[in-house]
Amino acid sequence: MMKYKSGDEIAASFRNRFKGHLIEDPYVKTFRNGVKKTAYSQVFVRVKRERFQDAARHLKTFDGPHHTVASGSDLGDEIEVLFHFEVYSASHGHGVVVTIGTRCPKDDPHIPSLSDIYPSVTPTEREKQEFLGVAIDGIKDNRRLFLTHAVPVGVYPWRKDEFGPEKLVRQVHKDPSGGGDGTRVIADHSPFPPGGPPVKRKGGDA
């Protein structure tokens, strides 16, 4: 029988490996439910963008990482993308949810793709591109996934800044840039305008 590592051991392993490249210290949350109080835990690891792919590779040293989804949020000046995994899946009671995340500044919104390491991330990476306006370098399929071409390029529903969808809430037909009806956007359904993802200048209101 193989040895299963606990959440704390996984967090410690990331802490040692990526010392100096961590955005915040990896932390573990452990919960106990039910009558028998069986423990299960989740680990949050936030790594700087440069070492993000390494962190994803490091996760592979634990048995059977199962990728579920990437979530993301607008933190104000930065955009955070979190990839949620489970290690020791199919282990009957030893699974640990590991979330590895990275951040990128809004004036340089791109992060590396994990699709070479985990082939199943492509749909969720496509979703992050169109919903957060963050470019994924090396994505396997650059088209939009969920948003139809009725949503203008340059509007990202999860952004809480001027690229957010607030102006679309009532008037879908108005292009935020002014003219046009905004419904026919770009032929290849790319989530970004020709120049790449929108860049927020520091201090500017755009």
Binding site: F31, N33, G34, V35, K36, K37, T38, Y40, H66, E86, Y88, S89, A90, S91, H92, G93, H94, G95, V96, V97
Partner: peptide, 19 residues
């Protein structure tokens, strides 16, 4: 044939007692 089932892999709630 992959035995992935979150009820048992990540024994939350009452599922921990049923493992």
């Amino acid at each position: 044939g992959v035995k992935k089932d979150i009820r048992f892999d990540w024994p939350h709630g009452a599922y921990g007692d049923m493992m």
